[in-house]
Design a protein around this nucleic acid. Structure first.
Lengths: 183, 183
DNA sequence: CAGAAACTTGAACGATCGTTTCACTTTCCA
DNA sequence: TGGAAAGTGAAACGATCGTTCAAGTTTCTG
């Protein structure tokens, strides 16, 4: 724990800046992230981010990692459902939810692309792929099929991001049942 | 056809600028694209892109659309193979090739993200999804499974972009056989 | 060959960028 | 309580950005 009031305020501001950054990423993409834009979004002076983070890349990495960790925690919670069928159903609902407000989805894929060039972001991506993989192994033994689930999970969401009529929860459930051989 | 030598030179420069833009996207991502950077890559003066394109967004859209159209043509050619099993095999080899030199892959996903905010880019993305969908319908009747193939196709490549040991052609072939129910 | 059309290119514009500096307030601790 | 530590924020820096402008050259057309 941390009890120093000075550091506590700093940590709070860091969180505010991360939240503002994610909002900017959702609205305008990674390209729209700058010290001044993020600061205005957070209602803070332009130099706030420069003080609390080691440059703009550090802020971006922190924000995208944070977004990914939230998503990972959600999936982990759903995957822990004792009823395997209920887990699938809830997973499908979660996918439909994420597709509906696409902000997090955009952040997730921006992180993927950034990670392709900045190894510091790879652990967050690996954590995401691992939690999906773990979920899939509950239903499948074949490693090839597990790999397929991880790829299809992201691909379906990316596809949904660009479709006129993205799939509903019921369709996601059908897709998951096919992938997990639970027909 | 076009026979005006003045316009021909202009078209040629446009192609050079598009090629240079794709190189920059592959190396540094969309964020690295600017008039001056692209011009230096192409060995042209900084104002060349400003003359031939209606702004930097127009250049970027032209380049990413071009990359996507090349990819679409490749898939279409492979899908036209009279032997269904040979088509799967060649498709798997193509996927492994693309993963190996990841430049086009990065461009493709940058286009996806850009299309989420700029509707002008949607047709190129839809063309890609359509050609994969068409390929899948040769093997599958169930629309849900066709949807799954399209999503999984992109998702697997995106995943491969970030794996330490991306799948080989043989693994892609196994994955395709599962997806297309051709075991 | 003369004028129009298309292309070329360096210079320059205002805007925004990331970052540093420095004077300041707040908070902690001995 | 007084000095150290942490955070705050306005101002300013040089760099880069997209774009415009104007003075050229090349190419076509009548």
């Amino acid at each position: 724990m941390e009890s120093d009031g000075r550091r506590l305020k700093g940590e709070q501001r860091k969180r505010e800046l991360i939240a503002a950054t994610l909002k900017v990423v959702a609205d305008q993409g990674v390209a729209g992230v700058s010290h001044r834009v993020v600061a205005k979004e957070a209602g803070l002076p332009a130099t706030a981010a420069a003080y609390h983070f080691d440059g703009i890349d550090d802020l971006l990495a922190a924000a995208l990692t944070e977004a990914m960790n939230i998503a990972i925690a959600e999936i982990r919670e759903i995957a822990a459902d004792p009823d395997p069928d209920a887990a699938i159903r809830r997973m499908a609902e979660s996918m439909a939810d994420v597709v509906r407000d696409s902000g997090r989805l955009v952040a997730e894929f921006e992180l993927y692309l950034l990670a392709a060039r900045k190894p510091a972001l790879l652990p967050a991506v690996r954590g995401w792929m691992d939690v999906i993989s773990e979920f899939a192994r509950r239903y499948l033994d074949d490693p090839l099929r597990v790999l397929l689930v991880v790829g299809a999970f992201d691909g379906l969401m990316l596809q949904a991001l660009l479709m006129e009529n993205p799939p509903q929860a019921s369709e996601f459930e059908g897709l998951l049942r096919v992938l997990l051989q639970r027909n």
